[in-house]
Amino acid sequence: MYIVVSIVILIAIAAGLLRAFLGPTLYDRVLAVNMVGTLTVLIVAVLGFMTERPEFLDIALVYVLISFVSTIAVLRVYAHRNTEAAGGTTGPGDK
């Protein structure tokens, strides 16, 4: 049963990766990173139960706690850029 779950999660990760590769805007990529982060939490949890060592949920917990920090950092850099450029030059999202 776990194998079905993990295959589904892997397919979802692949879909998220595709979005991160294709872009085109920064927000697509941020969402893709977030999604892959969530799915990683899931797959680590599933792997823990699959190998009958559920104590490895610790790793999943670390992800839950800190994976969003980098997302916030990306958005802050972007916001910083935009306020400095004051709408003048092209931001990374305009490509």
Partner: peptide, 19 residues
């Protein structure tokens, strides 16, 4: 910026691989 985010994904994937 996009490369940095892909690096983050890369590290997430490699952590799952390590598990």
């Amino acid at each position: 910026l996009a490369v940095t985010m892909l690096t983050s994904i890369y590290s997430l994937l490699s952590a799952s691989l390590f598990v």
